[in-house]
Design a protein around this nucleic acid. Structure first.
Lengths: 326, 326
DNA sequence: GTGAAAGCGCTAACAA
DNA sequence: TTGTTAGCGCTTTCAC
């Protein structure tokens, strides 16, 4: 490996001069020229470890994600990646495979790697999270769930729920099935549901039944195969687009027509809701925006500036082919 | 920040003793006890930069991916991540957004970060790639494309192409449209096509027309809207599942029934081919396996052992609802 | 503008 | 078993 010492030796200058040049300090034209040539010839690149060790200013941001193969994750990740790139930071991604313990573990790993800050795509936030964060001593931003004593950026889940609930009511449906997920996930399992039920509760003649399903497509599908035949609902509101796709597939498998026999909608605004036929009614969340703001705030935090504790992003109701008038 | 020096001072021992203890060396029971307590109290974690600086044995593997939101990428990434985790390596992911220049740039960035090795999900491999790799001096493994002077793991594209071609012929189709991608991508743009055409060339009465489309769903969709009406093909073989989905959507938009009016198939075995109705005939590639082997080989390379220059993975033809007898 | 020297946090001889 | 010492490659004073 070629080091700054080699360059200095070859150029006949002190390594401090090389360092200064590399970091934009002033050197004589002659030195600059020599250095340019030698660095190019040797293909020298500074050792990032040594740099970070000395300067104390880490150049990496860590991100903890529950799983890779999710539309939301990908959208957020791409936008964070793009933004970070502009700011000369590297992204260190760690995957927890939906394992809460690994989430804590990863906070510690990342802090060992001396990342400048950590962004977490959260599902649940436990006291163990908060403890690990405090002891890491670096800024942490939660995405998707509100953290009491930390920074977070969330979607307006209640608003999203209300718009779908209102939509179902507007279409004249009286028997509605709401397919939710476990309540540990506050944003999806509680708030989203609250929004839907709030909107529907204003109609005395609407009957809502709630069923708890799973983020996992396969599980959601199998479950739907069993509860759909027993249900007389004409509209099935699913807590995620993924579940909506599963329910749709189950409905088709059971010989039901969508939306003629049953209307189906999701949440999220995944691209795939447009790919299928009929396209699926959903509420589009602003994932890219979320990533952008996360990076912006993270950098402000790293630089010791103030940012809002919690930012709530709006969303956009998108009626499509999978829902229709009763 | 608490350092090894602080621990040593608090425990009244030399920092080398602390280091030895931390790295599994032997210390007296009394020292061990003291160290345990103090490390727990101070929540000390070693600085990974300093460790890597000294030991020269980096603990990160870099991976360069063309884009985040692809099923293949996600599958490979998850499996690499999982394997690496077992081996105590961290994954450093960099995204190029399908920009070749950024691919080269990222090879350099990663080498600056002193990763132990680099895995590249390649689309094309240029001399510039090889130059950057050589000058980095660390092991590089290409996934999906065969590299002349480096290591690679690829899918058997020709075999995959042949099985789809054979399938179309078996179903009795005489007019076939093959939708490919630009030839710069050797694996997808050349070999896959070659496999299909090879299989079909044995039938004198089969007529194949080739059209070049795009990996991008939206572009593929718009293109399909324009060429499908002019085509009398009864089977459309698409070079990727993504394109197949786009063509399917276009066919539906144009009022064609699948598979009655036109059969459609893809390549890849993406999950989504099962989600849509009709499900899409495809060839399943072994992405997880690819990731697993990549990690295995990478670690052998890092440890200076020998591995095969090129490994070719088989694949699995999966007929589904989107293709039918003429 | 340049170089000498100190030190970032850690590991790895080597001696004790 | 333990401490001393010498760096790893780099940045950063501080004289010159």
């Amino acid at each position: 490996m070629v080091t700054i010492n080699d360059i200095a030796r070859l150029a006949g200058v002190a390594k401090s001069t090389v360092s200064r040049y590399l970091n934009g300090g002033s050197v004589s034209a002659k030195t600059k020229e020599k250095l340019d040539r030698i660095i190019a010839e040797t293909e020298y690149t500074p050792n990032a470890f040594a740099q970070s060790l000395k300067s104390k200013k880490p150049s990496m941001i860590g991100i903890i994600i529950p799983r890779l193969n999710s539309y939301a994750t990908n959208e957020i990740l791409s936008s964070i990646d793009e933004e970070l790139r502009n700011k000369q930071y590297q992204l260190l991604i760690t995957n927890t495979n939906q394992d809460i313990d690994r989430e804590i573990e990863n906070i510690n790993t990342l802090s060992r790697q001396k990342v400048a800050g950590i962004i977490i795509l959260a599902t649940v936030i436990t006291p163990a999270h908060m403890k690990a964060i405090r002891s890491s001593g670096i800024p942490v931003i939660f995405l998707g769930q509100k953290a009491k004593d930390s920074y977070s950026i969330v979607h307006d889940e209640i608003e999203a729920g209300r718009s779908i609930g209102q939509h179902a009511a507007d279409l004249g449906h009286k028997k509605i099935l709401y397919v939710t997920v476990f309540e540990d996930d506050v944003a999806v399992g509680q708030l989203r549901k609250k929004g839907v039920l709030d909107a529907l509760s204003e109609y005395k003649d609407i009957e809502v039944k709630v069923i708890t399903s799973d983020f996992n497509y396969q599980k959601a599908y199998e479950q739907a195969l069993s509860y759909l035949p027993k249900s007389d609902a004409t509209y099935c509101i699913c807590a995620t687009d993924n579940i909506a796709l599963a329910v749709y597939k189950a409905a088709v498998t059971l010989g039901k027509k969508v939306p003629t026999d049953i209307s189906i909608s999701g949440f999220g605004g995944y691209d795939i809701t447009n790919l299928v036929t009929p396209s699926i009614t959903t509420v589009k969340y602003h994932y890219k925006e979320m990533g952008r703001i996360a990076v912006e705030n993270m950098i402000r935090l790293i630089e010791g500036e103030e940012v809002l504790k919690c930012i709530t992003l709006g969303n956009e109701f998108q009626p499509k082919e999978s829902t229709a008038k009763l």
